[in-house]
Amino acid sequence: MLPFSAEEELTAEQKSAFSKKTNLIVSLLLVLLILLVSLPVLLVLIVSVSSEQSVVNNGYSFFPDSFSLDAWRYLAHSGMYLARAVFNSFLITAVGTTLGLLIMCPISYALSRKNFRYRNGIMIFLIIPMLFSGGLVSTYMVNTQILHLQNTYLALILPGLCSTWYIMILRNYFQTAVPEAMIEAAMVDGGRQLQIFWRIVLPVSRPVTMTVALFQIFAYWNSWYPSLLYLDSNHTELFPLQYVLVNMQRSIDTLANDAQYISGMQVYTPPAVTVRMVLVVMAILPILIIFPFFHRFLKNGMTIGAVKG
């Protein structure tokens, strides 16, 4: 059962249905498209290194009067427990994504098996929460008064673990990528489900597991609302990076907006607009870093034909 075959050695060009000429035209069009799509992102980057005064005078502009790294400096010197927060974010993201996949993949596999008796029942069981939710208050009550998750890492990890949406995507992939016949054959050989799942299904499903992992990684990395709900202000040691950044943002906004309520000394206000953009860059930076690694996995999937043959 070699997963790779000689076919793999065909270059992408040979496999493609595009001729060289079509490829060139389509590529040019795509270049145009990504230029358009990335304009606002580019704007964010430029504003983050513009001087605040320039933004005040000219608004968000691709061509600011002057550049300044003040906003970045502010972030570096803000003295907010950033190191600890980065560690927390890594921990939460790693544990959450791994645990999530460990829970979602098996049930998706089970659901992808057409002769699984409880398939429809479990399917309905999974779809109901997608349609009905108890709402914020009851969720909060359950998590704090029944599960007692407040002020722990678990409060940031557990609630985001699974999603019916991803389970469906995994299930569809397993269904298409791994033909029923192959599993039947493996079962005739006496294979248990765990073996089949681990040895056959997971290896050929790397593209989908990695796609889901990618999205989960960023969901965890960028999530801050659970921290607001479940972490009290005297548990700052648990704050993830995004929550610290959101707080920073909010505190700049408050300083800027109701300075009149702060008695006495007029407080130094940091460059509000440009810091905001710096925080956005912080949020999308990990995507740029991780994506190339992820992208390697996306091409390894197209192999099952060999097994079948």
């Binding site: 460990l102 829970i103 979602m104 098996p106 049930i107 479990i122 069981f125 999974l126 109901i128 929460p129 009905f132 939710s133 108890g134 709402g135 208050v137 009851s138 969720t139 009550m141 359950v142 998590n143 029944i146 599960l147 557990l158 609630p159 673990l161 699974c162 389970i167």
Partner: peptide, 16 residues
């Protein structure tokens, strides 16, 4: 495992 998760994080709060 997924069923247990759904019960505690999706079904319990349904009383809302």
């Amino acid at each position: 495992p997924a069923i247990v998760w759904y019960v505690s994080f999706c079904y319990l709060p349904l009383f809302g």
